[in-house]
Design a protein around this nucleic acid. Structure first.
Lengths: 209, 209
DNA sequence: TAGATTGTTAATCGATTAACAATC
DNA sequence: TAGATTGTTAATCGATTAACAATC
């Protein structure tokens, strides 16, 4: 365990967590890789390979204990710990992220929202008051954050990333429709909504091929 | 061209489109696969392979004409055509999608927003008035839509998908944090925001391994 | 023409699937 | 114990990369 884990495996982990949570909520105590595979539309073999990247959490002849495995995957994902987020850009997307209740429930707490538009500064988004972007540096020095959510227009995104990284916030959840050029020690995960919609469009256009 | 196109290639197409649009806006007329590769952090070989799934849009000794290639990829993505969308669920995410201006610019027009909460019905989101979900069937019979955006809680999502599919809206952009079970002729593209955030968390936790 | 770069075939690499011994 | 199912090695499959002839 704990060797190299491929990007393909990492991307499947939240799906495991989600299905195990649903199973747990449904009162299911135990599940085999074959049954979980049927549920998730993966092969049993792939599930066992994926899980064994991290350790032998199953038992021969029995399968996996749902709550145990969910706990292990939660730890592997790091969502057993709390994360402090700042949001940059209080437009549609920034506000949606700021007020989306399930992130908070999952341990991701938004501690500040910034915008450069003076008309937005001072307004509320959920319980937080939108601050001017010029206050960000001082705020971060007083209140360390783990994650910066970039919900700004594409042309501002690279610059904003560099500003937060200079203050040691080097995990970026990027909603700006552009590919950032991060430093080596900075982690960027993109949510390219337009890309996703275009993929839907592609599949509609090429439906019967 | 026009043979089988792998999911891996499809997922890269919006990135090509985005970079070509940026290049066109910057006044770049021509680009080689090597230069585009440096820009996108892909190999030149992969770019040529990807593009040649759809046709020989380049010229030996020259490379690719930026505007031409952007036009071809736009057509391949189907975004040269307009798409009518309905949004189900007028919470944070539904409102953000309804009012996000760039979708409209890219030809995706939201024609209605529905919610089941009587307190939301009658309120405005952008220029549209939120309708009661019970009106959806009648609305869709009078106003055909191409895409349904599911921005409802996970437990409602499967049911809502089935309702819109019964009215021939069989392309689903799913924001509900659950995996849907679509009919064979229905296309689902997921935006699992929590999954994406969990992947960021994973990468933060396993930074130096 | 000479140089550059594509389109395309062949080689490599990595991810998925299959198989089965270990073991609960 | 017998049956079930994992953990893990081996085989297969598919995607990426390399190479190079075609050609602008």
């Amino acid at each position: 365990m704990a060797g190299y884990v491929s990007e393909a495996v990492i991307k499947r982990l939240p799906g495991y967590y989600r299905h195990l949570r649903e199973l747990e909520a449904a009162g299911v105590v135990q599940i085999s890789s074959a049954d979980l595979g049927r549920r998730m539309e993966l092969t049993a073999s792939q599930i066992r390979q994926d899980i064994n990247c991290f350790g032998g959490f199953g038992r021969q002849g029995y399968g996996y204990n749902v709550s145990d495995l969910k706990g292990h995957i939660g730890e592997i994902l790091g969502i057993d710990k709390k994360h402090a987020m700042i949001i940059i850009g209080a437009g549609n997307v920034g506000n949606a992220v700021a007020t989306y209740p399930s992130f908070f429930k999952e341990g991701f707490e938004t501690i500040a929202v910034f915008d450069k538009d003076p008309r937005k500064v001072g307004m509320k988004t959920g319980t937080l008051t939108i601050m001017d972007i010029s206050e960000m540096e001082a705020f971060l020095q007083a209140n360390p954050a783990d994650i910066a959510v970039l919900a700004v227009p594409a042309p501002d995104a690279q610059d904003m990333m560099e500003r937060v990284c200079a203050l040691n916030v080097n995990a970026i959840w990027n909603f700006a429709p552009t590919d950032l050029k991060p430093e080596a020690d900075t982690i960027v995960v993109n949510v390219h909504l337009s890309d996703s919609l275009q993929i839907l469009s592609y599949k509609m256009a090429h439906r019967d091929e």
